[in-house]
Amino acid sequence: MSQLTHSLDSSLLVRDVAGDYRPANADEVLQAARRVLAGQMRDCEALTSPQVVRDFLRVKLGALEHEVFAVIHLDAQNRVIDYVEMFRGTVSQTSVYPREVVKEALARNSAALLLVHNHPSGAAEPSRADEMLTQTLKSALALVDVRVLDHLIVAGGAILSFAERGLL
């Protein structure tokens, strides 16, 4: 087997505009992975498989160099309605506005939410501000009958769950 054939066999291929196949670059592979994981989230596998949620979030937020606060909207049967990146911050913080989170939940007719944000520092431990924000959002959303099922912190490949830690 030639070296070219071997290298093509071990890589993903994409079709270019001329219709020819070529090895995919890293960005194209990541985009394809995001599409597959997003499809799994929308196909309601998300809550029957916490691993799918974690894999999706690792790909979506794990490598970012700035903080992002996102919300996964769920219906009354805990099926995924939407994933929305609501706020973008700096390398160490982002501002989150509870009023806007409540508005988005009502606009999508969400019954429950998963709160998500990343720590570009690589440390998954929640700060005191993270804990206070979670309680503030939980209280604000409870006023409109929207449950907060979890708050997940993505730090590179590590993911911390507030629910698993008893912080919810």
Results as ranks from 00 to 15, higher is better:
H66T: 13
R108Q: 14
A32H: 13
Q77S: 10
P50W: 08
L106E: 14
A46I: 00
R34I: 11
A70F: 01
A46T: 01
R15S: 13
L4C: 04
G39F: 03
V52M: 08
L47I: 00
V154Q: 04
V17D: 15
R22G: 04
V96T: 07
S110F: 08
D82K: 11
I153Y: 10
R165I: 01
T48D: 13
L152W: 06
R99G: 06
M41F: 03
Y97F: 15
E164R: 14
V148M: 12
R165F: 02
A18N: 13
S121G: 14
L4K: 13
F87W: 10
G39K: 03
A105Y: 01
H117A: 05
D150V: 00
L64Q: 02
V101M: 03
A24M: 15
P126G: 05
Q40V: 06
V59G: 01
E28S: 05
Q93P: 01
L8Y: 02
D130G: 03
Q77K: 08
D20T: 08
F162H: 12
V148H: 08
I159Y: 07
M86E: 00
V91E: 12
V53S: 04
V148I: 15
A26C: 09
E100I: 13
E131S: 05
S110C: 10
D82I: 00
T90Y: 08
V80A: 09
L115S: 00
L4W: 09
T48R: 13
S121W: 04
L133F: 04
R54M: 07
F69M: 03
G122D: 11
S7H: 11
E28D: 10
E125P: 01
E100M: 14
A155R: 01
H6W: 04
R15F: 08
A142K: 11
F87T: 03
R15T: 15
L13N: 10
D43M: 06
V146Y: 10
V71F: 06
V59Y: 04
F162T: 07
H73N: 05
P98T: 04
N109F: 10
T90G: 07
H6D: 15
D75V: 01
F56A: 01
R79W: 04
V53A: 05
Q51L: 15
K103M: 13
G39L: 04
N109C: 09
L137R: 00
V71A: 14
H151K: 07
V80N: 05
V80M: 09
M1V: 14
E67F: 05
V116D: 01
G122V: 09
V148C: 13
R22L: 10
H73K: 03
V154S: 07
R35N: 12
V59C: 07
A32Y: 08
S7G: 03
H73P: 00
N109H: 14
R34C: 07
R58E: 10
V101F: 04
Q31R: 05
G62A: 09
G157A: 12
V144G: 07
L143K: 06
S49Y: 13
S110K: 01
Q77I: 00
M86R: 11
R42Q: 13
R88M: 05
L149M: 09
S92V: 13
S2Q: 09
A46N: 02
L137E: 00
F162N: 02
L152V: 03
R34L: 15
D150R: 02
E28L: 06
V14N: 02
A124C: 07
V116A: 05
Y83P: 02
P98H: 04
A163N: 12
D82R: 09
Q93N: 12
K60E: 15
C44E: 11
